[in-house]
């Protein structure tokens, strides 16, 4: 864990039951394109969160494990230095890894260099095919992306901004609990918890000190991820 981290997320793998509600909520909140049957079948479905499912053991003694993987908002992100036009860059204020859609030229280099494989590419103008009433569901706070650009999880930065503006209007700092991204809000088993990692008394900081928070995902690469996974002990002997 790095001292500079501001926002952080804790995912309790014991609580995740793989229901994919977070994926749906994320798609609605962030105007993520629906790619259609053919492209989804070809492996181009766009989701900012993917639920990895692993089976352990042989039938009937089988344990299923789920791991939601989204952008880890690396403090030292591999996608940032490779972008020739600074479309992928580091927000020093929020300590997030942000993607500037209208700056992206579509080299897809960041997608190759992301060790978590969480970056998504807009292969076509998917939003253009949205039939008439359905386009009203678009979130006005989020850009509808066009073809040829990269996108990825933003930790719902539009919600972070809104909370910060509200806090500023009230003349205070933003507090833990002010912001909830769509996935954390939707998660029925409260497996996803989001908050201020910079505040040692916040819920995420509290959870991050849990004995099950042993390693960060691909910590050995030095990416300094901001998502903390609580190890699943379900199905194992305590």
């Amino acid at each position: 864990m790095v001292d500079k981290a501001k926002w952080g997320m804790v995912i309790d793998l014991d609580r995740c039951n793989g229901c994919t509600v977070c994926v749906t909520a994320c798609s609605m909140e962030n105007n993520i394109a629906h790619v259609g049957e053919a492209d989804a079948g070809y492996g181009r479905s766009m989701q900012w969160i993917r639920i990895e499912r692993y089976w352990e053991g042989e039938y009937p003694n089988i344990v299923s494990r789920f791991m939601p993987v989204m952008c880890q908002q690396c403090g030292n992100a591999p996608c940032e230095p490779v972008c020739p036009v600074y479309a992928s860059y580091h927000s020093e204020a929020e300590q997030l890894n942000v993607q500037i859609y209208n700056r992206c030229v579509g080299t897809r280099y960041c997608g190759n260099n992301c060790p978590y494989i969480v970056r998504q590419f807009n292969w076509f103008d998917y939003a253009k095919d949205m039939p008439e009433p359905l386009n009203y569901q678009f979130n006005p706070d989020v850009t509808v992306r066009r073809r040829g650009i990269m996108e990825k999880c933003t930790f719902c930065i539009q919600r972070i901004r809104r909370a910060e503006e509200a806090a500023e209007a009230q003349g205070r700092e933003v507090r833990d609990g002010d912001v909830q991204p769509a996935c954390a809000q939707a998660c029925p088993s409260e497996a996803i918890v989001f908050g201020l990692l910079a505040d040692p008394n916040s819920q995420v900081s509290h959870l991050a000190r849990n004995a099950r928070a042993q390693r960060l995902l691909l910590e050995e690469l030095g990416t300094e991820p901001r998502v903390i996974y609580l190890k699943s002990e379900r199905g194992t002997k305590r």
Binding site: G43, R44, G106, N112, I117, W123, F124, D125
Partner: peptide, 15 residues
């Protein structure tokens, strides 16, 4: 004019 999708590349093989 249509998009990079007419090529065969897909995640994770972006190149």
């Amino acid at each position: 004019l249509t998009g990079m999708g007419v090529a065969g590349v897909r995640r994770p093989t972006y190149w």
